[in-house]
């Protein structure tokens, strides 16, 4: 039997993997992908809670709508982020975060 806790633990592990990616990798694009993993981990727990909270034989659709909004905003974020990465690559010829230190104090 699969329960809500199983989904929550899977979601937590996925979030941890994404967080480790942000910390360990130095390539901007990989860091960006790890951010996407973290957003999706949050979505998984939202959908899990939505399915758990049953009213009148229907799941709580507010959770699913929030996940929908997260997916939409993430898509907008990806387009802007990748445009910034391309502009950065044009200026610096690198996507390595340690080579980009213009804003470093």
């Amino acid at each position: 039997m699969v329960t809500l806790n199983d989904y929550l633990i899977a979601s937590g592990l996925l979030f941890a993997i994404g967080f480790a990616g942000v910390l360990l990798r130095r390539n901007v694009i990989i860091i960006f992908m790890a951010l996407e993993l973290m957003l999706n981990a949050a979505n998984l727990s939202l959908i899990g809670f939505s399915r758990y909270n049953v009213h009148d034989g229907l799941p709580d659709y507010n959770g699913q709508v929030l996940a929908f909004f997260i997916i939409t905003v993430a898509a907008a974020e990806v387009t802007v982020g990748l445009a910034i990465i391309v502009a950065l690559f044009r200026a610096k010829q690198t996507t390595h975060v340690e080579d980009i230190t213009t804003l470093k104090f």
Binding site: V2, Y7, A10, L14, N40, N43, L44, I47, G48, S50, R51, P59, Q64, A67, F68, I71
Partner: peptide, 13 residues
């Protein structure tokens, strides 16, 4: 992950 969503009856998502 999409398969997990479907397993939670969230077909649209």
């Amino acid at each position: 992950l999409a398969a997990l969503y479907v397993s939670l009856d969230a077909y649209f998502i």
